[in-house]
Design a protein around this nucleic acid. Sequence first.
DNA 1: GCTAGTGATCTGTGATCACAGCTGACGGGA
DNA 2: TCCCGTCAGCTGTGATCACAGATCACTAGC
Lengths: 243, 243
Amino acid sequence: MRLVSGMRSVTALADLPQLERQTLSGTAYAALSDLLASGRLAPGERLSLRQSAAAFGVSVMPVREAVSRLVADGVLEVSPARVIRVPMMSQDAFRALAETRIAVEGIAAARTALRHSAEDLSAIRNAEAAFRSEAEATQPDRARAIQLNRDLHFAIYDACGLAPLREIIARLWLKAGPVINLDLRAHPERLRQGFALRRHAEALAAIEARDAPAAERAIAADIREAAEFILARGGLQDHSGGD
Amino acid sequence: MRLVSGMRSVTALADLPQLERQTLSGTAYAALSDLLASGRLAPGERLSLRQSAAAFGVSVMPVREAVSRLVADGVLEVSPARVIRVPMMSQDAFRALAETRIAVEGIAAARTALRHSAEDLSAIRNAEAAFRSEAEATQPDRARAIQLNRDLHFAIYDACGLAPLREIIARLWLKAGPVINLDLRAHPERLRQGFALRRHAEALAAIEARDAPAAERAIAADIREAAEFILARGGLQDHSGGD
DNA sequence: GCTAGTGATCTGTGATCACAGCTGACGGGA
DNA sequence: TCCCGTCAGCTGTGATCACAGATCACTAGC
């Protein structure tokens, strides 16, 4: 802490980008998160520590730590029989998750509308345009569309100015990811209906106009419509106890 | 899965309480969480895997997993020098955390006001009375008051009907816990000023009247006043770079 | 006297081993 | 033909060992 006073010769090194150590556990966590977010690990699917470790080319140790973090987040679950799987979500649970997202992401969008900077706005505009051009393509790439949709939403949330809030939303997306992607895989036609496009445009317009309630409504509608679409499809298990 | 059809004799066992296994990692996590929530681990304090393991009477393995979960939650941090410590929170970070709590917990309180059941309400009433009697005692027990305050807040949040939201709030409290408790330890006189008491009474009244905006305001005020009190005390490090 | 080098010690991380318990297929009995 | 006990092969969990790197007290050298 006496860097400034005593070590003037290396003062140029004082504020370096603080390159952080990359731990194997962290890498495994990122890899698993990606698998989940992209829907390549579907609800109900099992996961083996040793197999995953072999696939990643590491020992079970890092995978184990990554899995335990995912379990803590509720993105994976380990049954009493010691079986790791991505949880089946009941209709009720999915509905609760969607409502939570509506509330939390709505707040973030409203805040962004009020306090966004010029850079924030242009980032959001770019993200919206990127998603639009992909969704309106004659042959939309599903995986790419998912990624661009995510980019747009988080461009908005990044600008809300509350790091903890953004982090919460990231966790919620991790939880909802498998269900949403599984559905989109089964019913890719939703992309063409353009619901999301309209809501995104509304959100962008509201943010540009610094109209917080409108931004909140647009994001809420975006989430709600997607959730209702999935619930209508009935891919989720009924809470009344179907096996 | 053919329990019903083929094994009629044991059908009485079909819907047993699904007793869950207690893992050492889970126990360690609970123990560390408690240490953090009760403020016995102050911001900046270090933590050693081996020492903690020895203290708990287990190997480093379970502690390690517990710590990695806490780190994922941002409640602990591990520096590039591989030092585990509870993070120092800057004033800005604390302010952002408080604003996030105001938003999220406000939502939960508003929902509870609208949809609480009779049981919910009586649980909230009891919790409010318990905190009040402790806070108004001639010799308030600080640790007990903290616990009762927590009980009251979560009695309200439990009734909001959104499990994911409740979980988010629990994480936020874990994060804010060390700072709040450290401050309360240094300045116990805040308990006597009765700010919290007034806000709690307002929240209870609003919930009883099913007045969602008022409930949201009361909880927001409760959080905001506590945060401002702590910020005014100046125990947090300034973001401009004090060491 | 103060700085800079040095080595013992302790840190988290990762690999490997040991173990209890669940799973699921096989085979004997009704 | 169907049920049920049995056993091999997994599972996750926990302990232990190995290792690179950071810390900190100490000492040699200016």
